[in-house]
Amino acid sequence: MTNACFIQLDEYATYEDWYPYARYCLHHHIVPSDVHWQNDNIDDLFCNDSNSQQLTIEQAQNFKPGNSNQIRVNRNFVILARYSCCFLHPDRFAVMYRILWRVVHEDNLLLADITDPDIHLANRWAKAVGRDRHKMKAFVRFKEIKFANEDPHYVAWFEPEHAIVKLTSDFFRDRFYGMDWSILTPYLCVHWVKGTLTFTQGCDKSQAPQEDALEDLWRTYYLNIFNPARLKVKAMCAEMPKKYWHNLPESSLIDPLIKQAERAKQAMIEKKPTDPLLPSKTKFDREKWINSK
């Protein structure tokens, strides 16, 4: 009889969901190979394995290690785990538990060894999550919904690659503290209304508003800030991958702008210089102005 166990987590579970289980297992000396993390909703053979008991959330949460038994883990581990546990890979919780185990029992400097395969993998996940978060901060576009006699509500639709909504909601709260807003995503929605942050189930795109009156102004800006003499499409696509385009109001302009760029540049180059229309006597006399001050 081993103390092997299996743990059922949601497909979009993240660090906070994993934490109570990991703490329980660590304190009960359950070696990583005996913990079966399951988070893909597929019936796994372990569910029927009589040797392995399901560890329930109640068991995990009710377990409180006494003060004298506290296990200290470097803060860097928590930072890494918060990020890499958002990476939608079925092994993320197993890998992070294995790293936790190794940090506690084998090598407390493990995290610094970036050539270690586990650390390398976790870092790669964390980096991808960081990038996804960054893109969310950049490419969420709020659309205003107006109400009579009430403050407007701003709603955005976004499709993150990983489970980053909770991890990124603080950023939006702290930036848009004085307005009411919602960000809708396929797996989880977040709302900031009258100073309270709440989460609701994911939804589909049709729930989000389709337009905002300001978008014409934004497109006008985008159109005019572009310099056709410096076309660098690759550089643009590297930073703003096409998969994000469908939620950006400005993206409909991109193809036409690229097509017309060469002609616009040549027109500027070929155009003959003209004579100034403005009379030169209105020109500024710096000396005179300085002396008059």
């Binding site: 960054h134 901060k137 950049a138 490419f139 950023f171 702290d174 930036r175 848009f176 503290y177 004085g178 307005m179 985008y222 800030i225 572009f226 310099n227 056709p228 410096r230 076309l231 660098k232 499409v233 690759k234 550089a235 643009m236 930073e239 703003m240 950006l248 400005e250 991109i254 702008l257 690229i258 760029a261």
Partner: peptide, 18 residues
């Protein structure tokens, strides 16, 4: 009110000039 700053700044879009 609204507004915040971040260490690295954020690029909210890219024009076709990169």
């Amino acid at each position: 009110s609204i507004g915040s700053t971040t260490g690295m700044g954020i690029c909210h879009s890219y024009a076709p000039d990169g």
